[in-house]
């Protein structure tokens, strides 16, 4: 007999259901039974009151990506003697897995990540809320002015749901940004103006423009140069 938590506060005693793909987990000292083949985050999301896993780059409509790292939890596969950090949005549930979502180490890690995100995007409401929850007052770093946290949800939604890839992540490292592929001057005809990217964006960095197409968070870099080049070209002939 196992004690299974339903909706956090109520619990049931159930026998192990034979033939059903059920996986027994312990999340924050509570035993739960979930169906196999899903990730920790998916399992915990469906059980209100159990665990506390924030996530920014996760959306149920697209494949998990594991970029924001805020959903990091500690897991043990050997009954609790050894724990390690994993991203809950990617880690598959396994029989007997022990998950801890609120240890001091986890809180410190999330606080560190949120501090970095807040320094990058000090004006983003979602990040500010997380900062408040995890006790980040003021980042110790020089503040940026970005709105995009590079979670890649817009790019993945456009690719996976719409099947268009009208926008992509360009460049690498700290210079990475969301733009039209190859830094094109404007979104190509591939963009059908569906607004999916703006809908999934957790920070509101993408807004829909008056022409029915999304306005990307950062489309400045090459554009000024291209404009200058085009001006030159129009002057040069004759």
């Amino acid at each position: 007999m196992a004690k299974v938590w339903i909706n956090g506060e109520t619990s049931l005693e159930v026998k192990h259901a034979e033939g059903v793909n059920a996986v027994h987990l312990t999340v924050d000292d509570k035993d739960i039974v979930v169906s196999g083949g899903q990730t920790i985050l998916q399992a915990v999301e469906r059980m209100p009151g159990i665990g506390n896993i924030p996530a920014l780059c996760y959306h149920p409509a697209v494949k998990p990506y594991g970029a924001c790292r805020i959903c990091t939890v500690e897991v043990s596969e050997d009954g609790g003697s050894k724990f390690r950090f994993v991203a809950a949005c990617l880690y598959p549930v396994k029989e007997g897995l022990i998950v801890k979502t609120q240890t001091e180490k986890i809180k410190k890690l999330r606080k560190g990540i949120i501090e970095l995100l807040l320094a990058r995007c000090p004006n983003v409401k979602r990040v500010q809320e997380l900062a408040k929850e995890y006790g980040v007052e003021k980042p110790r770093f020089v503040l940026g002015d970005q709105d995009c946290i590079l979670c890649g949800l817009c790019v993945r939604a456009c690719q996976e749901i719409i099947g268009k890839s009208a926008i992509s992540l360009v460049n690498r490292g700290i210079y990475k940004e969301v733009a039209a592929p190859f830094y094109a001057y404007e979104l190509s005809g591939d963009c059908i103006g569906c607004g999916d990217c703006a809908f999934v964006c957790p920070t509101g960095a993408i807004e829909m423009g008056p022409d029915g197409k999304p306005v990307l968070p950062k489309v400045k870099i090459p554009y000024a140069e291209i404009e200058a080049m085009m001006k030159k070209e129009t002057v040069a002939p004759s």
Binding site: Y65, R69, G112
Partner: peptide, 10 residues
Amino acid sequence: SCGKCTPCRE
């Protein structure tokens, strides 16, 4: 750094 995950990029 490829820039995919927050800790490494930032």
